[in-house]
Write a protein that binds this DNA or RNA. Structure first.
Length: 729
RNA sequence: GGGCGAUUAGCUCAGUUGGUAGAGCAACUCUUUUACACAGAGAAGGUCACAGGUUCGAGUCCUGUAUCGCCCACCA
């Protein structure tokens, strides 16, 4: 018996070398996997299993959410690999455009007091590049620490050349199909970052503000934002509101307003809520989505009041040029002096929109931007999507719905399907242009009135659109672009569509839905068969881990203390699809003890059964034990096939501790002491075989210790990670 | 406002199709017997949120209530 088994299991001595051994073997790359032979000695056909790592942000560091996500995927990947699938898990990193640029800009301002406009586009890009390259390796090495069996030779970065080609191709094809258009719409404008963001990047935050009531001619109107009211020349009420029956649609009313007399026009529209306030409102079409829609319906004027930096425009008269925050109290003061202030409700609770990517309050603005039209009909030439015929007319929305409705893609847990439909049904056109500099630049060139899509036009003087694309535009292509699309590579043919995807449920819309949209349109295919949505890892009080809250637990600390295997088990056990985990360090400790238990089981087996013979016939009792184990193996396999990892892990834990260690080893002692040679031989074979197969079953969950023990087995040749799974379900 | 989910032992959570309530941790008692003290043995601990219903039988299915949580949303 190797001497190491005489001491307790020491993960710190094992995990580093084992990972290196795996990586050096080349087996993370499915091209190098050993060929399995069938009974006739012919190579077995290899089905593929492919999955992509949700690419972590380049500038990030590993947190427990990543650790969980990595453990989850690696367990499935190792299981499939042992089952004989040609298994590919593609690693990558995400540039995280807004978050990264925001971080670099913040540092720039802190350290040098400069803004991006002071140093210019090229210099900023240089700094971002330097920053991302420094931090990229950090996160990738941390992913390795989790034991992730990723094929590093296929590493993809969202901003590299292959991915840029894919982005341009996608843009051009969507543009040519009229699914991408440029238009003037109300967009979500972040005045601090100076960029638009999409609807999904918005968060609503509850806030208490004063609510002002003003006399507006014969009406009383309410607002939290007096500073937008300069341009209000339409007064809207519900057509059925009896209180205002005397006023007719289109009626002009002369009244005194902030900067003097104006002419207001009465608009009867069902958007007016009779229950709210006085039932009358004025509208600001250039700075509000609802108002914009009302104005569109009645073909009214759109008059911007606030510029993109949050300053008032000349329409504000004496307040022009002033920042809205400063102007608000002064405007209220002026209205009060003019006797137009009716009352103030100081404690009005409402929701405001903020940029969820660490930005400011959103200021709706009327702007020219690029959009993806989700309702526009187009003809899909080839479609493998169930419910969508090749050559039929469809829309992006329909296609996204059909993928799930007709079971082309299964979402786990299934109640998220309802949430997915709900989102699609309420989806509006997707604003894809951003005014930040870090990201894929919009592939459109202008010269005067001319525009050229995909590449600059003939001749001189073409200028590329200064904007970049929403980071999710390129992320949506990820299942294809990581495999080389738009080139028809052999990887693409072999590994697309992916077998599964395991992101957190919080990016179901951002990412999963966008991948379905993109792959559906560009390839007529669903990007993956199963979406396993995992929950969020929270602290033991149920709070989200976040840097700003400072409640983070560094997974690397857990790995140091208890080992990667223990951390993986603690995250996987009790973690059903879609449910959040409250992280408890005591559980990690518990699985460290389990690792040691397995170590000691091995010691006993080595001590007593290292001369086991595979030919020894089983006694009746041992045959029963073998059958019992076989049942467990089948059970565990079924759970793994059906993505109930938590159950499989728990069953293995229970079997090894309470059956193998507690019962079988105990009953073996007298057999070896006083049993017949036949009984002893049977028992030796049993212990060795079950140990061997248990290591296989446990390997996907606890890859390090199982590989380490495997390497010490008397007759192990190959590494455990490529050994055949002991049973077929 | 719309939607989704949770509620099981002191704590964290399992309980896949309805068939005698489970694990880990913590707490209690005992044991250093050559796999393991990073252990073993034993005992203790629960009206499965509440109220109805279906059923021979409900933690599990149905209806309602309460509390907590999450997502979506343009009430000025």
């Amino acid at each position: 018996m190797p001497e190491k088994f005489l001491k307790p299991y020491d993960h710190t001595a094992v995990e580093g070398p084992i990972y290196k051994k795996w990586e050096d073997s080349g087996y993370f790359n499915p091209d190098n996997l050993p060929v399995r032979l069938d009974a006739q000695g012919k190579p077995m056909p290899q089905e593929t299993f492919s999955i992509i790592l949700p690419p972590p942000n380049v500038t990030g560091t590993l947190h427990l959410g990543h650790a969980y996500e990595d453990a989850l995927q690696d367990t499935v990947v190792r299981f499939k690999r042992m089952l004989g699938y040609k298994t590919l898990w593609v690693p990558g990193a995400d540039s995280a455009a807004i978050a990264t640029q925001s971080k670099v800009e913040t540092n720039l301002y802190k350290e040098e007091g400069k803004t991006r406009y002071d140093i210019g586009r090229d210099e900023l890009m240089e700094r971002i590049k330097k920053f991302t390259e420094e931090s990229k390796n950090t996160i990738l090495n941390q992913v390795r620490r989790m034991g992730s069996s990723l094929d590093w030779s296929r590493f993809a970065y969202t901003l590299d050349e292959t991915r840029n080609k894919a982005v341009n191709e996608a843009f051009v094809r969507m543009f040519n199909a009229d699914l991408i258009y440029r238009g003037e719409r109300i967009v979500n404008w972040d005045p601090r970052m100076q960029t638009t963001i999409s609807d999904d990047e918005i968060e609503h935050k509850e806030q208490v503000d004063p609510f002002y009531y003003f006399q507006y001619g014969p009406f009383v109107i309410g607002t939290v934002r007096p500073e937008t009211k300069f341009g209000d020349k339409y007064v809207v009420m519900h057509p059925n509101d009896k209180r205002y029956a005397q006023y007719t649609h289109g009626q002009k009313i002369e009244l005194e307003w902030i900067n003097g007399p104006i002419t207001a026009t009465v608009i009867k529209d069902e958007a007016g809520d009779m229950e709210f306030g006085s039932g009358v409102m004025t509208i600001t079409p250039a700075h509000s989505g609802v108002d914009f829609e009302i104005a569109q319906r009645h073909k009214l004027d759109f008059e911007p009041v606030i510029d993109s930096k949050g300053k008032l425009l000349p329409i504000a008269g004496e307040f022009a040029g002033m920042h809205i925050k400063k102007a608000r109290p002064l405007i209220v003061e002026k209205l009060k002096e003019k006797g137009l202030l009716v009352k103030i409700d100081e404690k009005y609770t409402h929701n405001v929109a903020v940029n969820s990517r660490g930005g400011e309050m959103i200021e709706p603005q009327l702007k020219f931007q690029w959009f993806v039209d989700v309702n526009k009909e187009f003809v899909i030439p080839d479609s493998e999507i169930p419910g969508i015929e090749s050559g039929s007319t469809t829309t992006l929305k329909k296609l996204m719905r059909a993928a799930v409705e007709h079971k082309g893609m299964v979402i786990l847990p299934d109640h998220f399907e309802k949430i997915y439909y709900h989102w699609i049904d309420n989806l509006r056109d997707w604003c894809i242009s951003r005014q930040i500099w870090f990201g894929h630049r919009i592939p459109v060139w202008y010269r005067g009135e001319e525009a050229s899509v995909g590449k600059p036009g003939e001749g001189e003087g073409w200028e590329q659109d200064p904007d970049t694309l929403d980071t999710w535009f390129s992320s949506g292509l990820w299942p294809m672009s990581t495999l080389g699309w738009p080139e028809e590579t052999s990887d693409l043919k072999t590994y697309f569509p992916n077998s599964m995807m395991a992101p957190g449920y919080e990016i179901l819309f951002f990412w999963v839905a966008r991948m379905v949209l993109m792959c559906g349109f560009l390839r007529g295919a669903i990007p993956f068969k199963t979406v396993f949505l995992h929950g969020i890892v929270r602290d033991k009080n149920g709070k989200k881990f976040s840097k700003s809250m400072g409640n983070g637990i560094d997974p690397l600390d857990m790995i140091e203390k208890y080992g990667t295997d223990a951390l993986r088990m603690s995250l996987l056990v009790g973690a059903a699809a879609g449910s959040d985990i409250k992280f408890d360090e005591a559980r990690v400790k518990g699985y460290k003890l389990f690792a040691n238990k397995l170590w000691n089981i091995t010691r006993f087996v080595f001590d007593n059964a290292s001369d086991a013979s595979a030919d020894a016939p089983f006694t009746l009792k041992d045959a029963e034990r073998a059958t019992q184990f076989k049942a467990l193996a089948l059970d565990v396999t079924k759970d793994l096939e059906e993505y109930r990892l938590y159950m499989a892990a728990e069953k293995l834990y229970h079997y090894l501790w309470d059956i193998f260690a507690a019962d079988m080893i105990e009953e073996s002692k007298p057999i070896f002491k006083t049993g017949t040679p036949e009984e002893a031989a049977s028992r030796k074979r049993l212990l060795m075989e079950i140990l061997r197969d248990s290591l296989k079953l446990l390997h996907p969950f606890m890859p390090f210790i199982t590989e380490e023990i495997w390497s010490s087995l008397p007759d192990s040749k190959e590494m455990l990670m490529v050994e055949a799974w002991p049973v077929r379900y």
